[in-house]
Write a protein that binds this DNA or RNA. Structure first.
Length: 896
RNA sequence: GCGGGCGUGGUGGAAUGGUAGACACACCGGACUUAAAAUCCGGAGGAGGUAGCUCCGUGCGGGUUCGAGUCCCGCCGCCCGCACCA
């Protein structure tokens, strides 16, 4: 035991169930291949990371987005989980009861693809992958509580999801309605938007059709306002993510406005209802445009072949290339007219237009070309009037001219009768009041309304490998929920993927059941749930993974919200928004007591790598490359053939560009600690990081350097231990200060998730200690305790990042128990203070020198010292300074 | 088009309005070695000077300030998100 180093009272080092065997103490090189599996076993056998729900200490929940079991982890996982593990190990050392679980987002399409392509059962394929990936994750040495592992494809998980679905159905949070989907007529399946490429199915290549299907929806749009408003409270989320969600929800205030139709024998409707956010421009209206899917359009198209053809064209355009969406504004005149609601005696033509969406607002708009670009494009094409009604500031009415660009800025209303002279805001209010008082078709002509872009969340998937939706369709009783006692509705295992379409639907017997209400033969719902449902509550399940109910309220409420959630920015909208909604829906059905699932959110950047191509332009993997450096230029050639290789741009690691680096190989070569360390160093965690061979080697060298430093220090300590304690000399004091500054900084940086800065601090501390080792050897009077304390603190600081190495060093230092159980070292605040301070001295804002003065020195002293500097005196040239700025303990600026 | 972010040495990046380039990678020089690797020591933003030093320098142009990488205005470039949302 090293003298002079005190642990806080109450510090306990538990006895190990198994005495760790440290090999290699004093060895030249640290061998991660031997030590990493060793410590993983020790942690495992000691249950070092198993969490007790009854532990009275303060709780901390850190969670990384759980992976899809694709079969192999990639570097993105390594980075994500390395960050989460630093947070988990840090807070554990700080004495919190830390929950850090892991599970599998195990339902989804790839399993079915494997079934089709390789004749593997999706379940078999998935569980094989889970096993493989679990082994990989374990080799990373993460401080996970594996006893809480869950897989969403496990009936013990999805039975609870089904139960909650039923509760939400009963609570009116679920609805069933018709909706348009992308239908692949060859695969006989519904495609997600991203599976539609240039209007064709990604697998079959067949032209995708728009079909109306009756689907299940979560009524997330009922929560639009709340989800939007609550974003302000999520102060530990990245602004970027909050902005993205805000835009996605897309709140807009406007007016629902009725236009009276001129009578027409073809139709019964007496009015058309539009939604507008610019009712102030009503006097500038020059046409009405209906969506191709508007009910009125459908009625008219039935007797108007030309219109029907136009509508069909619009539909084709809808599915075809999204990139050509800058498409021309096109329309078709219906022959109908409406009365202008404010300009007496005038009428407006009614068009069907390709740019009007049915599922926003009312599916109809009024066009005011002067102040809306789309409307202007349309008006120019069909030669409709363009009347400006907003006068730009500093312009006379006569000067206003609308060319090809609509005027959308602020101004004063003109050309608008009783609205003239009002601001846009005032005019909106005035016109809303005006229409609110008028009746048309038996209701107020105008109603103020808030609209959202956010639509209800369609969860029906015509797929086998998902959570079955627990309802039964009965010809007599209609849609009947499966009684809770019959849950789970389990997926059949004997499925065939020989036929295209939904394997669940094709199963010979599964869907045939008796109606739970009337007993008549009925049919199970064969749609399964969107996998985003699975991931919308797994964080809650982790708090009581074996409970007979979806959650145990006490536990869920005690652990949640997740203190720190970490994952990729690609989930900034859907997963995070769905989870926020689902948590509220769980609250409404009594499964949880909170609104927001994630208190702290962090989105980490991607892992990138250089790309390489051979002479034929083919991608070449980094493992086949030898890099050569000649002065400043880098060259690459093929390792086997010697062929010259072109070094390309740095891209996100992807199979298609072959610039992936396999974590398994890195762990086998350098060890997990090296990979983790490298992923945390250099780049700020929210930014992309470039994987380079040189970088990994640097990390690996640092690992060895720590190892040497610790062993060297201990070797010296062993020799000198009996020597008397001398005075604490200046160098020793300086080292102690550096050590405590590093302790302070690293702690703060980890808490702020600034891992790259924490790493830099540790490097600096290591440099200090390395230099000090030399001093101690040359002059034994310097106190050893300082060195040993420093080295020990260093080991503790690297603990969250390179846990295996740290644990090994902990043993070398002769500490009892596991570092994983040891408390975070305390900082001595006295050592953070200096009694003298170095002040830079500027002349006209440029640094010319520096002075050392006592902390809090009097102005007079600082002034005297500063002005007597050679450089300052020279610049002053004998004259007195024009001004002297002294910021206490910071800087001096002499103005000449 | 709208919204957001970023722009600093050869490279990744540091820097509460207060010494720009911490720390690392790469590079160069030296020590050790028969040699190499590893390791250790040292150098380094650019230009000029033997040197003490001097000038320039955080995408570009202005501004605020004793002082700007940081704040404000206007550009340029790159990245990300949304994209006909009335």
């Amino acid at each position: 035991m090293v003298p002079g180093i005190q642990y806080p009272p109450g510090t306990q080092f538990p006895t190990l169930k198994r005495t760790p065997r440290v090999t290699g103490q004093g060895a030249e090189r640290y061998n991660p291949r031997e030590m990493e599996p060793h410590w993983q076993t020790v942690w495992d056998e000691n249950g070092a990371f198993v969490v007790d729900n009854d532990d009275p200490r303060e709780r901390y929940y850190v969670l990384e987005m759980f992976p899809y079991p694709s079969g192999r982890i990639h570097m993105g996982h390594v980075r994500n989980y390395a960050m989460g593990d630093v947070v988990a190990r840090y807070w554990r050392a700080r004495g919190k009861n830390v929950l850090h679980p892991m599970g599998w987002d195990a339902f989804g399409l790839p399993a079915e693809n494997a079934a089709i392509e390789r004749k593997l059962n999706p379940r078999t394929w998935t569980y094989q992958n889970i096993e493989a990936m679990k082994a990989q994750l374990k080799s990373m040495g993460l401080s996970l509580d594996w006893s809480r592992e869950i897989a969403t494809c496990d009936p013990d998980y999805y039975r609870h999801q089904q139960a909650m679905f039923l509760d939400m159905l009963a609570a009116g949070l679920v609805s069933r309605k018709k909706s348009k989907v992308n239908w692949d007529p060859v695969d006989m399946t519904v495609l997600a938007n991203e599976q539609v490429i240039d209007g064709r199915g990604w697998r079959s290549g067949a032209e995708v059709q728009q079909r109306e299907l009756t689907q299940w929806f979560f009524r997330i749009s009922d929560y639009a306002e709340e989800l939007l408003a609550a974003l302000d409270g999520l102060t530990e989320w990245p602004d970027k993510v909050r902005v993205m969600q805000r835009n996605w929800i897309g709140r807009s205030e406007g007016l629902r406005l009725l236009f009276a139709l001129e009578p027409d024998p073809r139709i019964e409707a007496k009015s058309i209802e539009v939604f507008t956010t610019r009712p102030d421009t009503i006097f500038g209206a020059s046409f009405i445009a209906l969506s191709p899917d508007h009910p009125l359009t459908c009625t008219l198209a039935a007797s108007d072949p030309a219109l029907a053809e136009f509508v069909a064209e619009c539909h084709r355009q809808g599915t075809a290339t999204e990139t050509l969406e800058k498409a021309e504004k096109r329309g078709h005149f219906t022959g109908l007219h409406v009365r202008h609601p404010v300009s007496e005696g005038e009428t407006l033509p009614v068009y069907v237009a390709n740019f009007v969406l049915m599922d926003y607002g009312t599916g109809a708009i009024f066009g005011c070309p002067a102040h809306d670009q789309r409307d202007l494009d349309f008006a120019r094409k069909y030669d409709l009037p363009v009347l400006p009604v907003v006068l730009p500031p500093d312009l006379d009415p006569q000067e206003v001219e609308i060319g090809d660009e609509a005027y959308v800025e602020d101004g004063t209303i003109f050309n608008s009768g009783f609205l003239d002279g009002l601001s846009i805001e005032d005019a909106k209010q005035r016109i809303a009041g005006h229409f609110a008082e008028r009746m048309l078709d038996g209701r107020p002509q105008g109603v103020v309304e808030v609209n959202y872009r956010l639509r209800d969340w369609g969860i029906s998937r015509q797929r086998y490998w998902g959570c079955p939706i627990p309802v039964i369709h009965c010809e007599v009783c209609g849609t009947v929920p499966v009684p809770k006692k019959d849950l789970p509705v389990v997926l059949p295992e004997d499925v065939s993927f020989d036929k295209p379409g939904n394997a669940l639907d094709h199963h010979p017997s599964w869907k045939h059941v008796d109606c739970p209400q009337c007993g008549a033969p009925a049919r199970r719902e064969t749609d399964t749930m969107d996998t985003f449902v699975d991931s919308s509550w797994y964080f809650a399940r982790f708090t009581a993974p074996d409970a007979a109910t979806p959650t145990v309220l006490d536990q869920a409420n005690a652990w949640l919200p997740v203190d720190q959630y970490i994952g990729g920015v690609e989930h900034a909208i859907l997963h995070l928004l769905y989870s926020r909604f689902f948590t509220r829906a769980m609250k409404a059905t009594g499964h949880i007591g909170i609104d927001e699932p994630f208190k702290g959110m962090f989105t980490q950047g991607m892992v990138t790598h250089e790309t390489y191509r051979n002479g034929k332009g083919e991608w070449v993997p980094p493992t086949d490359i030898v890099l050569e450096t000649e002065g400043e230029t880098r060259r690459a050639r093929h390792a086997a053939t010697g062929e010259a290789i072109t070094i390309g741009s740095v891209e996100k690691m992807s199979k298609s560009k072959k610039n992936v680096v396999d974590p398994d190989e890195i762990v086998a070569t350098y060890g997990a600690d090296t990979a983790r360390w490298f992923m945390l160093s250099d780049s700020p965690p929210e930014r992309d990081v470039q994987w380079t061979e040189a970088g990994v080697e640097g990390a690996s060298r640092f690992q060895q350097r720590i190892w040497r430093l610790v062993n060297e220090a201990m070797a010296i300590a062993a020799k000198e231990a009996e020597g008397g304690a001398g005075a604490l000399d200046d160098e020793a004091l300086a080292v102690r200060k550096a050590v405590h500054r590093a302790l302070h900084q690293v702690g703060a940086d980890i808490e702020g998730l600034r891992f790259n800065r924490a790493v830099a601090q540790i490097y600096e501390m290591t440099n200090t200690l390395s230099r000090y080792v030399g001093l101690v050897e040359a002059a034994p009077r310097a106190r050893l305790e300082v060195l040993v304390e420093g080295v020990e603190r260093l080991v503790q600081l690297i603990g969250p990042m390179m846990p295996h190495l740290a644990e090994t060093c902990w043993q070398v230092l002769g500490r009892e128990g596991l570092l994983a159980d040891a408390p975070w070292p305390p900082v001595d605040p006295a050592l953070l203070e200096d009694d003298s301070v170095t002040l830079p001295v500027q002349v006209n804002g440029k640094r010319r020198g520096e002075i050392v003065v006592p902390k809090g020195a009097a102005r007079e002293l600082i002034e005297k010292e500063a002005l007597s500097l050679d450089a300052v005196a020279r610049m002053l040239d004998g004259k007195p300074p024009r001004k002297l700025v002294i910021v206490p303990d910071r800087i001096v600026n002499v103005v000449v």
